[in-house]
Structures are given as C-alpha cells and as structure tokens.
Design a protein around this nucleic acid. Sequence first.
DNA 1: ACCCTCATGTAACTTGTTACATGATTGA
DNA 2: TCAATCATGTAACAAGTTACATGAGGGT
Lengths: 177, 177
Amino acid sequence: MRTLKYAILGLLNRHPMTGYDLSKEFDKDLTYFWHAKHSQIYPELKKLTDENLIQFEVQITGEILEKKVYSITDLGKADLAQWLLIEEDLEPTPKDVFKLRMYFAENMSKEQLHHMIEDQYAKRSLKYNFLKERLEEYGESPTLGMSDFGDYTVLLSATMRENAYLEWLEICRSYVS
Amino acid sequence: MRTLKYAILGLLNRHPMTGYDLSKEFDKDLTYFWHAKHSQIYPELKKLTDENLIQFEVQITGEILEKKVYSITDLGKADLAQWLLIEEDLEPTPKDVFKLRMYFAENMSKEQLHHMIEDQYAKRSLKYNFLKERLEEYGESPTLGMSDFGDYTVLLSATMRENAYLEWLEICRSYVS
DNA sequence: ACCCTCATGTAACTTGTTACATGATTGA
DNA sequence: TCAATCATGTAACAAGTTACATGAGGGT
C-alpha cells in the first residue's frame, strides 16, 4: 500500500525538509498514528526521488556538512491529492500484545493477572496524562482553522483512545479483585 | 519478539489442533487483537516443531487426506507460562491510515473531508454493531469464570475501542459541518 | 576535550502479504 | 457433478527493526 510514501509526501507538501527532519516528525505528531525509523525513511526518499515525486537540493551546514533538503514535485502533489480521497475498507483491528496475554489469562494466577493489569494501567495512565496535557494546550473549546484541524484531531483521537483503554482496564480490574 | 509463536502456543495449550484450525481461530476471537494468514502459520508450525515446543500426529480424514494435529509439549508450556508474565513497555500507538489522511485534511475541500468522515463512520458503525451483538450474547451482567475471562474481555475491549472511535468521528464531523 | 545533536546511509534480519500450487471431502 | 470447505504448503515480495558505520556542528 506504500503508506510510508504518502506520509512523507504529506509532510513534504507542508514544507521542504531533510530526511532527518522527517524522522523527527515521525517522533512527534505522527506518533499518534504512524511511525518510521530513519533506516526506513532514507531508502524511501531515494525511491521517491527516482519516481520524480520529490526532489532535493544540497545545502551546506557550517564548513563541510552536507544535507539534502527534499521538496515535493507537481507529480508528487498530484499523487498525494489522489491518495487522500481513497475510501478503503476498514483495516483489521490493530495488534495488541497485552490483549493477547489477557486472552490467555486462564494460565495465570489471580495475583499474577492482577499485577499485569495494574502495571498496564500505570503505564497507560502516564501516556493518557501526557496526551491530555498536550490537548489542553489548545484551550477549552478550540476554534479550528483548517490548518490546525489535522494536528488537533489526531491528538484528540489518541487521547480518547487511551481513555477508552483505561476504562477497559478498570473493568478488567474489577473482575479480578 | 516472536509474538505469533506465543499466539500459537497459547491456542495449542487449550487443545490440540491443525494448522487449518489455527488459521480459523485467527479469523474469530483473535481478530480483536491479532491476525495471521495460513502462509505465515504453516512455516511457524514447522519452526516450533523443530524447537520441540510443539509436536504433531498425522490423522487421516476419509480415505486419503492427511492432517497434522499439533499439540503443545512440556517445553512449550513452560515457554508460554514464562512469556505470559512479561511486563513490557507500551507499544507505539498503532498505525492508522485513516488518521493519516485526516492529518493531511487541509488538502481536501470541506465537502471531500465531510464525505471521508461519513464513509468512515458508516463502516465503523457496522463493525461496532456487530461487536455489540456478540457482546450481548454474554448477557447483561456476566458472571465470569476464569475460562471465559479472556474471551469476554478482548471482545469488550474491541467494542469499547470502536465506540471511542465513533465518538471521535462525531466530533470530527461537528468541526466540518 | 567532551558530549549531545545533526546528518546520512547500509546490511542483515524478521515479519507479514499476495500469489502460486495442489488435491481431498462433503453435501446439495 | 459441482461448489464450498477442508487441508497443506512454497515463492516472491513488501514492510519494518536492529545493528553497523561514519562523521560534522555547537555548546560547555
């Protein structure tokens, strides 16, 4: 499906940047729904360049250090625009190792199961609180321009998702205690 | 991380079955948190047999057709028991192509965005209703034995997850209309 | 001097998907 | 006899991770 391709095209469509910059983007906002390491990004950039969807110019930082600043081409923009409108079937439910363990919970003692749930709850709480703080930076009732919509909405979805996960864990906990 | 390995060990720990049976399990309850095709399962079964974690005996169906009925070994049971108790760091937020499209929504017209959201809402609703029906088969307030806990809890988590997704889509919708 | 960040890549491997390939059994 | 399901596998490819590998820039 070449999803990484479109994640990169979408980012470069905002403004030109280097592979390193892209890599950092995947560690910021994009973590709420995608991720990629630099070892996957650099080869993909090469491929997209070969396909004439992006191009780069070399900039010099300091005296020697070269960096490639990539930008999207018209061909790339057209490809992206077309991809954005595709209405696919639902993807399968995402994989979740913790749930796999819960599914086989009959092989644990009640104490062990209880401990697993508490541990997961603690970790999810931290994540939820972090997301909630980010979200509150937008203020109580955000009035969104189209440019903020994307950023805000994916953060909101991540927060609601973690909230639902915590609620589920609370129910699990109540069945075990 | 060999997660497929433990999914298979967990299933075989319940009772012996064939690769074909395992494949069907991944299409049933396990879809709520894992999936695998037969082309991945058969090689893994071979590997697990080589590692002495499972074993098989050949049964004949009808006159000719051979099937391999796999069962877990003591070594496999020990490996599974140890794995179940591992408390890992949270996995990264699962990937979601629809959210990637929403993130780049600034490149769509309001009408296009609206259509995308409605389409996704319709598909998610169907899934949610299906899950809810499955869940209601357990009755209003289920009294769970340890053997049902796994089955019920993963279904509950999938339902709550879809519910949260729908709530998010409703908010998205309200920003667009 | 030292450390952190910036910056770019490759190699080996694991995981997962799609397509190819075959044939038996069961019930309508 | 025909179709759906049962049953098992492989090959080629795509996607993703971990480790290897190198070196400059900037601040203390």
